Simulated scan of single mutants.
Amino acid sequence: MHAAACNCTSHQGGYSHSSVVYALKECGIRHIDTAKRYGCESHLKKAITESGVNRESLWITTKLWPGDYGCETTKAACLESCKRLGLEYVDLYLMHWPDGNALGKTNRELRAETWQVMETLYDEGE
């Protein structure tokens, strides 16, 4: 297994469908690092399918955007990312950025609340 990740998915570099399929199918790349912010999760669903690589062989990382931090939105955002990716689960779900805003909450409180929801997602196997 190659340690490199497919880097064809950033918001700055755009999305290259043929590059992702090629990396998965021909180069043995098995880690996809993406995020809701990059806007290509649904495109990756198609690339994963086209590559023919089975889900168990992949490591998929995606990220929670700060606008989705908090009790009410974290779980829904994670499930929406999974749906866009066509996956039942992701291997690594990260908080994309250290700062978040919510009325009446400090950044620290918001991050702690978000982390607690992420732990619940993990414990529930989602």
Score class of each variant (00 low, 15 high):
H43N: 15
E80C: 10
N101D: 06
E126D: 06
L44K: 06
K36H: 15
A77D: 00
G104K: 05
G13Q: 14
W59E: 01
C40A: 14
Q12C: 13
G13S: 14
T34P: 00
L103M: 14
S81C: 09
P66N: 09
E88M: 07
E88Y: 07
N107R: 12
C6R: 02
Y22N: 14
E50P: 05
W97K: 12
P98H: 10
R37I: 11
D123E: 11
V90C: 15
T73Q: 09
K46W: 00
K45Y: 06
D68T: 03
A112I: 07
H96M: 07
G28E: 01
T34Q: 04
V21G: 10
H96I: 03
G70R: 08
E26F: 13
A4M: 12
G28D: 00
K83Q: 11
L44W: 06
N107T: 09
L24I: 08
T34H: 04
H31Y: 03
Y122F: 13
L64D: 00
Q116F: 04
S16N: 14
D91K: 09
Y69G: 11
T114G: 07
T62R: 08
K83D: 06
R30T: 11
L44D: 01
E41K: 13
K105V: 05
K75G: 09
V20L: 04
V20I: 10
K75I: 04
V20G: 01
E126C: 12
A23H: 03
E88N: 08
D99F: 14
L92M: 04
Y15G: 14
A102C: 12
E119T: 02
S19W: 00
H17C: 09
T34F: 06
L121I: 13
H31R: 11
E109N: 02
D123V: 05
G86H: 08
V53F: 08
G13C: 11
V53I: 15
D123Q: 11
Y69V: 09
A77K: 10
D68A: 15
E119K: 15
R55E: 01
L92Y: 02
Y15F: 15
M95R: 03
R111D: 01
C8G: 12
E109G: 07
E126A: 13
E72Q: 15
I60F: 04
N107L: 03
E88G: 13
E72N: 11
E126K: 15
R84H: 10
G67I: 04
W65S: 13
T114V: 03
E80Y: 08
S81I: 04
H17S: 12
I60V: 15
G70N: 08
A5S: 14
H2M: 14
H17G: 10
G125I: 05
R37L: 15
R84K: 13
E26G: 10
G86N: 05
L44C: 07
G125D: 02
G104R: 07
G52T: 02
L85K: 02
R108C: 09
D99A: 15
Y69M: 10
C71Y: 13
E124S: 12
T74P: 01
P98C: 09
T73D: 05
H17A: 12
S18A: 15
S18I: 06
R37E: 07
